[in-house]
Simulated scan of single mutants.
Amino acid sequence: MTSGIIRIGISGWTYAPWRGGFYPRGLKREHELAYAASRFRAIEVNATFYGPQRPDTFANWADQVPANFVFTIKAPRFITHVRRLQDAEAPIASFIASGLLRLDIHLGPILWQLPANFRFDPVRLEPFLRLLPHDTKAAAELGRRYDTRSRAAEWLEVTSGRPLRHALESRHESFRSPDCIALLRAHDVALVCGHSVKWPRLRDLTSDFAYCRLQGSKELDANGYDNAALDELACRIKAWAAGEEAPEASRTGGVAHPRKRDVFVLFDNDLRVRAPANAMELIRRLRA
């Protein structure tokens, strides 16, 4: 069995402490995305979590990155934290219609991050998962259904569908449930493997890709990962990409279907310039 594509990257790219460190001194801010995209194969976009972006913004991001690069997109907190996944069809459609598909080939997985007090509830979660479009054609159709403009946006006129992936990040222990794993597998949604000192760490594989978010080994968003931790992570990533499972003790549900998987690993320990340094160190290990 061949291995899936491994993408190591960072969460966000606009951080003042990175200037003069990760970013060369004198690099213009408008060139920071292109610089970061030349060193990593994926970047997680946080701005979409806090509010809608303009179509031209998505297009501008796409114009600055190489062909083999993708953005993972954090879904709006209005859907996950305000609506708490209820009555979500119109907000999901509006999110798509805002210009998301202008990323074109650079559109990677959409990350749905749940609040820490959101408990696993299949009655609420299953209808939401059913709404998620799994290719760009279905996404465009949903966006057009709720697009209020008099003239349909060109990025919603999609004639062929590319796969569109979704990842769910839970932050409550109640998601450590075989029923949760079965539900995500039924809807082909990846369960995020989060590494955090605050929230549960779940490692079940529930889709054809794995999504891992790293927020610090000892201190949330700030602490880096030492050599031993990066070595262990590199081994796990290679195993995931090759279709191998986590040890039984790390699983909540049954064994996942054996198949190669693409793997996304995003470092979110962005304080003190830990994220880009750790990401580059991990890339070196995977190339060795």
Rank of each mutant, 00 (worst) to 15 (best):
H81R: 09
H31N: 13
N117C: 01
R29N: 12
A277E: 10
A37M: 05
A182N: 11
H187D: 05
H31C: 06
L168S: 04
R213C: 02
E169F: 01
P276E: 06
L129S: 06
P91F: 10
F95N: 03
Y15H: 11
Y15R: 05
A288F: 03
A16S: 12
W18F: 08
A42K: 00
L107V: 05
L220R: 02
A97L: 11
R176W: 03
A138Y: 00
V45Q: 04
R213A: 02
T72C: 14
K137F: 08
G4V: 10
S217E: 10
I73K: 01
P115F: 07
R201L: 05
R171W: 04
R287N: 14
L168V: 07
P109I: 04
T252H: 10
D268W: 00
Q86V: 09
I43D: 01
H106E: 07
D270W: 03
L183C: 03
L184I: 11
T159Y: 07
D87K: 12
D204Q: 07
I43G: 02
S196L: 11
R54K: 15
A16H: 11
K198E: 10
A234G: 09
F175G: 01
D221W: 08
A186W: 00
P163S: 15
L142G: 01
E44T: 01
A275S: 11
L131Q: 09
R203Y: 12
K260Q: 15
V158I: 15
G4C: 10
L103G: 06
L230S: 03
A140L: 03
A42L: 05
E232D: 15
R41W: 00
W155L: 04
D121Y: 09
D208G: 08
P200K: 04
G26K: 11
P200S: 07
R102Y: 06
F58L: 08
E141L: 11
A93R: 01
V273M: 06
G254A: 15
R236D: 12
I283P: 02
E169I: 01
P133C: 09
T72W: 05
Q215I: 03
R171F: 02
K218A: 12
W13N: 03
T48S: 15
L156N: 03
D226H: 05
P200N: 08
R25W: 03
R236L: 14
A210Y: 01
A228E: 13
F58I: 08
I5W: 05
V189I: 13
I92M: 13
V273K: 07
E30S: 11
D63T: 12
A88W: 00
P115V: 06
G216D: 03
T57C: 07
A234C: 09
I92V: 15
A36R: 03
K198V: 05
R213Q: 01
